[in-house]
């Protein structure tokens, strides 16, 4: 029997996952697996680093090297891994809270350094593991356990944040479009530089329930209305994009040198002195 890609990349003894029925994490995980497989990376040379949160648990199921770190810190740990051995393919799985709140500083500095990491931000608009509190990406007026009168904090746009801080590959995908999601993760892995993929996902049992978004299939269906591909978005007036989520590749640039390459140059310079 032909080996399935999941057989190569999952640890069957660690399944089933701890995620709720209808959660988007599984779709993101399969997209990461397919992207890694298509990238041709040797699984022995792949290190997946995660922080704390529901999506970060993905690293427990992957048959690669895994580094399940502290809340908010995976990019900082991954930076050390990559610098110690630049030949490794290093993928970070992080959540919206992990990455843009408690880990916000590490995130923007990773972008600024342009170190060759692929950061998949599994963005489900709330803190799921702790029971559904609002996060830095929770939309205004959305209901969460700590915004029971509607969220009153303006949200971050993960892609704008990454682009502004200097990431050289920035894209958004959705669990509703798993092939497109896999493709942007694959492009991120192939890109030599700091890659950020904002993976829009659904938290059905908390965010969905608190905002009366229906069951999992209904929640997913809403992306048909809400999600606009970048090429189309560019043709639309701003008012037509109100409340929409634009997906696609926002930044793909080779203009800046990658950090480990830059540091190799520092070593050369130091050794010449």
């Amino acid at each position: 029997m032909k080996e399935h890609v999941f057989d190569r990349y999952l640890r069957p003894e660690k399944l089933k996952t701890m995620w709720c029925p209808g959660c988007g994490n599984g779709i993101v995980l399969q997209a990461i697996i397919r992207a890694l497989d298509e990238s041709g990376a040797d699984p022995d040379k792949v290190v997946v680093v995660s922080g704390v949160g529901c999506s970060s648990r993905a690293v427990n199921y992957l048959n690669t090297c895994g580094l399940h770190t502290n809340h908010g810190r995976p990019i900082a740990y991954a930076t050390g891994v990559k610098m110690a051995n630049p030949a490794l393919t290093v993928v970070v799985i992080t959540g919206d809270g992990d990455c843009t709140s408690i880990g916000g500083n590490h995130f923007i500095h990773g972008c600024r350094r342009n170190i060759d990491l692929t950061v998949v931000v599994v963005n489900n608009d709330n803190y799921g593991m702790t029971g559904g509190q609002y996060s830095p990406t929770t939309p205004l007026d959305a209901m969460t356990k700590t915004s029971v009168y509607g969220s009153y904090e303006p949200p971050f746009d993960v892609c704008e944040l990454a682009a502004g801080a200097g990431a050289t590959y920035v894209a958004r995908g959705l669990t509703y479009y798993p092939v497109q999601l896999k493709n942007v993760i694959l492009n991120g892995i192939r890109h030599k530089g700091f890659s950020v993929i904002d993976a829009m996902s659904d938290c059905t049992s908390l965010y969905g329930r608190l905002n009366r978004l229906g069951d999992a299939p209904t929640m997913m269906k809403r992306w048909e209305e809400k999600a606009v591909p970048l090429a189309k978005a560019r043709t639309l007036p701003p008012e037509a994009l109100a409340g929409k989520i634009v997906y696609g590749e926002f930044v793909r640039s080779d203009a800046r040198r990658e950090y480990t390459e830059k540091y190799a140059e520092v070593i050369r310079r130091a050794q010449e002195v």
């Binding site: 290190v47 680093v49 770190t69 930076t79 050390g80 110690a84 051995n85 590490h106």
Partner: peptide
């Protein structure tokens, strides 16, 4: 860098020790 090693100035001390531990897992 003279010895081919790595110096990194991190964004804060949280990141400093995190990078140190990360580097150690990769053999440093």
């Amino acid at each position: 860098p003279k010895r081919g090693g790595t110096y990194m100035q991190m964004e804060d001390e949280l990141a400093s020790i995190a990078a140190v531990i990360g580097a150690s897992t990769a053999g440093a």
